[in-house]
Amino acid sequence: MTVVAPALDPRVRTALSELLLTMADDEFVSGFTDSEWTGIAPILEEDVAMSSISQDELGHARALYELLATVRDDGRDADAIAYDREPAQYRHARLLDHIRGDWADTIARRFLYELADEARLASIGPGYPPLADLVAKLRREERYHRMHVTVWIDRLANGGSDARGRLARALDALAEDAATVFTPLSGEPELRRVGILSRPLIEAEAAWRADLTSILVPLGLPVPPAAATVRGRTEHSEAFRWLWGEFTNVRRSDPGAVW
């Protein structure tokens, strides 16, 4: 995707780069984790659906990394940003740092993340037109992901004691990290000032919490507590180090190769 970056004030450039990296890393790690289901999902339609959703998320990550490459303009392209970092340099939310787990773990994680991503995308203002244009496009696609995961939340919650029990345990295990998509950004005041963010992330988190509540409470499932310990975006798990080894394996096997 060719994007000519409008001239940016250095402080805005730094703040925008931080935001884009968090958004791109979230979509990238989520896409890779869920692509683990390709070939082994519980039913054929779900194999196709989860593969398609993962492909969407990786495509969104690519578009965001490409935009980040134009904003930084330091010679690193989208692939270099996506693959040529050490695990500690990734900035995805801790929520996405968990192993794939069973189907209930995956649905619980996707549910918390999709609704958080939706609230974040709804917070992107017109301040940087190339990002606003891309976000308008992403939101049209994400509505299918929301539809998919909310159907599954309902199905597992009403699907007998084993399914319901697994879903409840999965939501409980993720509760501590649920809100980490909204980890404060150091450049947030700058992003607010120039209209790249149209509302503070804390307001986006409140909107997300209201959204979760409207779905979980009627199903009799607990909403993750607001005072959860926030491990943020910098502390990564062993599960992520394993995933990193997988998704960088081909790239590291022959650095600089042209595929």
Binding site: E45, V48, A49, S51, S52, I53, Y144, M147, H148
Partner: peptide
Amino acid sequence: DSAFGPTACRSL
């Protein structure tokens, strides 16, 4: 049958 099909743009 499914909102997701053989490519990103198709349903079954």
